[in-house]
Design a protein around this nucleic acid. Structure first.
Lengths: 126, 126
DNA sequence: GAACTGTACTATGTGTGTTAGTACAGTTGT
DNA sequence: ACAACTGTACTAACACACATAGTACAGTTC
């Protein structure tokens, strides 16, 4: 269910955070669902437990999950809402990316048609 | 002309590379123009000469500049063309970013109107 | 020859990512 | 009660990237 690219220059804990966010958004993990335990996931991915916990701690601090000592880590009911808010705050960064591509000679229509294509792909896979 | 954010988590040499690319794209630096010398720029930015050279070496390896020992570092005639090619290769990455925002509930129309706005800003500033 | 240019090299300090090992408190199921 | 699980906290060590410091050499410009 969760895979990690050990050769990536992106930190493992960072990849894990993004993966879990993605699984929450795609409703694979729903509110109050039980996440894999730190130890089991560390065995499954052949990664140190501390690295897994670092990701879990981050998710918990971001309000996306809540932890119960002895029971486990669960998806927060407000997780999807929070992820939506986070995405809105990334719009300026997205704009800077787009602006850079426009400056480099990429056509605005090309970017917009790409977005249309991605959007229709998304809708058809729901 | 060139500024650096020392507090940014982004490496200085990386910021410098992006700045110079930007200046080439905006025709502040044209083909065969003379870039600031390693030492003068290191003084101007209060940054170690090695850090400047790291950026210059990268630009040279990317074909954006060429160096002449004893004379200096100059903008390659093919620089803008290369930057255009680089931008095309970044489209998948841009698409992944857009897809993530769409998955998070951002509307496709909102992204497209953002691109339109950036494009018209760009055209009016030429 | 003096003053500039790019380039190369070693050494050092700092921060981050990762692994390793240990320990403790709470929950679950037998 | 006990064993096996859960999250959490902590120290130690290693590797790597970024940046700084200092020195050196070859080529150019005036």
């Amino acid at each position: 269910m969760i895979t990690i690219d050990l050769m990536s220059r992106k930190p493992i804990y960072d990849q894990l955070i993004e993966k879990i966010k993605q699984l929450i958004l795609s409703d694979v993990f729903s509110a109050n669902d039980h996440l894999p335990s730190v130890r089991s996931l560390s065995c499954q991915l052949s990664v140190n437990p501390n690295t897994i916990q670092k990701a879990y701690t981050h998710l918990c601090n971001a309000g996306l999950t809540y932890s119960v000592a002895g029971k486990g880590c669960f998806v927060s009911p407000q997780a999807k809402e929070i992820l939506g808010q986070d995405a809105k705050q990334e719009l300026p960064q997205f704009g800077a990316f787009a602006r850079r591509l426009l400056d480099s000679g990429i056509d605005a229509e090309q970017l917009k048609s790409l977005i249309d294509q991605l959007d229709s792909e998304r809708r058809s896979s729901l």
